[in-house]
């Protein structure tokens, strides 16, 4: 098998260690976590984790000079396979509405808005294992992962995509909420694959064998 060099962007957000460990586990220890823009050039795959608030994560990324530009260059320019996790996935949106309005990367048109389940008894954050409903099972990263696997979620805001074609999976929580978005070489999960046991590790494995084409 070809040696992959996935790069996980470490900009001081939350559970970076958990994400790194899961990739090390899947990829035989071969993972680089960095905030050095130059190191993105050697990446085979790019992963953007993120926990906490949208605005804080965006500010955290921008705090490293050149990092956002390098990310855009590698993901949009070079079309390297990209995985956003939780807030890292939300940052792919046009706009985040958590703590005011913050511009996202606008890679997948849509807004990140407060969860408003239609049942007032449902708790916020949406926390725990929920069952995925796939809308597109032929995606290379998602094929063969089971028909209704469970994934671990922790979030209070959700991605509302403009184009339904970009929503690859949803979960039911007082209405359908976006679980996976994607287009071209981009994919993002609202849930935490690094905490979703076998299913999550399988998804990571398939992401690492993906060349970014559909």
């Amino acid at each position: 098998m070809l040696k992959k060099t996935p790069v996980i962007i470490d900009y001081g957000s939350g559970n970076i260690r958990s994400v790194v460990k899961s990739f090390e586990h899947v990829n035989g220890g071969q993972v680089l976590s960095t905030n050095d823009p130059l190191e993105l050039e050697g990446a085979s795959h790019i992963v953007l984790p993120g926990v906490g608030a949208f605005a804080d994560c965006k500010a955290g990324l921008k705090a490293f000079p050149g990092l956002v530009d390098a990310l855009i260059e590698q993901v949009v320019g070079e079309k390297k396979p990209f995985l956003g996790i939780c807030v890292g996935m939300q940052l792919m949106a046009t706009l985040g509405r958590e703590h005011g309005e913050t511009a996202g990367f606008d890679w997948i048109r849509g807004n990140v808005v407060k969860l408003k389940p239609d049942n007032i008894n449902l708790k916020i954050p949406h926390m725990g294992w929920n069952e995925l409903v796939f809308h597109k099972t032929t995606h290379p990263v998602l094929s063969g992962l089971g028909s209704t696997p469970h994934a671990y979620f922790v979030h209070s805001y959700c991605f509302e995509a403009v184009n339904v074609e970009h929503v690859l999976a949803s979960v039911e929580y007082g209405g359908l909420i976006t679980a996976i978005v994607g287009r071209d070489n981009l994919i993002g999960t609202q849930f935490h694959p690094e905490k979703s046991q076998h299913f999550g590790l399988d998804l990571i494995k398939q992401f690492l064998t993906w060349d970014g084409t559909q």
Partner: peptide, 8 residues
């Protein structure tokens, strides 16, 4: 739907 969690 969201599942009840069992935590040892």
């Amino acid at each position: 739907m969201l599942k009840a969690r069992i935590i040892p």
